[in-house]
């Protein structure tokens, strides 16, 4: 009962962390928001499936908490510190447009939630919250130039996928494990930032992924 009561606020907080990411210009603050998001995701299996919690789901929740709440944000913070990128994030889209886009994305996410009903949904906010995270992640990847913002966008996108997977199809074999495997991409991307900085091949201090390749 308590778990059901807490599930709604956790999903609302997930949405708010995405809004924070879309509106914030400080990389450190963005990483803190993803840290919070990771912790909230770690709670999700316990709250959404409190009555039929299995060891597999509990392990997935704890693994997510450790990986998305602590390990990946710490690696990102370290990469950021090494790259000495503490100044504001360069946002070609400005600051008003991301928030306006967020409003549109929220409407779209709710519409998708209505079109794709869950039969035994732990919360009717689950699908909109998952799709809002996915749309926010896509916006961060496409709309933000610095590499660190794109990695954050990818992390948010996969958090959205994980929210949906853990909430909707936890009993399907290998589904939960697949969500965790997606973190490998984030790890490789973070290593990419670190390696790029260490090698300093282009002479730029801040990883700026694609200034040159075009027709």
């Amino acid at each position: 009962m308590l778990a059901e009561l807490l599930l709604h606020p956790v999903l609302v907080l997930l949405v708010l962390t995405n809004l924070k990411l879309l509106g914030s210009s400080q990389p450190g603050s963005c990483i803190r928001a993803t840290r919070w998001q990771g912790c909230l995701l770690g709670l999700l299996p316990f709250l959404a499936h409190s009555e039929d919690l299995t060891w597999r789901l509990a392990a997935a929740g704890l693994g997510t908490l450790a990986l998305k709440g602590f390990v990946l944000p710490s690696l990102l913070s370290r990469a950021l510190r090494d790259a000495d990128t503490t100044r504001e994030v360069e946002t070609p889209a400005g600051y008003i447009w991301p928030l306006l886009a967020a409003m549109g994305a929220w409407g779209l996410a709710f519409w998708l939630g209505e079109q794709l009903p869950l039969a035994h949904a732990p919360s009717n906010l689950l699908v909109p919250a998952a799709f809002f995270a996915i749309l926010s992640g896509l916006f961060l990847i496409a709309g933000q130039k610095p590499a660190v913002s794109q990695v954050l966008g990818f992390l948010v996108l996969e958090n959205g996928v994980f929210t949906f997977g853990i909430g909707a199809v936890p009993e399907t074999p290998v589904v939960v494990e697949l969500g965790v495997l997606l973190d490998l991409f984030v790890a490789v991307l973070v290593m990419g930032i670190a390696r790029f900085h260490i090698h300093g091949e282009s002479g730029r201090r801040e990883p700026d992924p694609w200034p040159g390749l075009k027709d």
Binding site: A147, F185, L189, G192, S202, P209, W210, L213
Partner: peptide
């Protein structure tokens, strides 16, 4: 090559 790899990964 790094740029291309980054784009490919992302």
């Amino acid at each position: 090559a790094f740029e291309a790899t980054w784009k490919y990964l992302l």
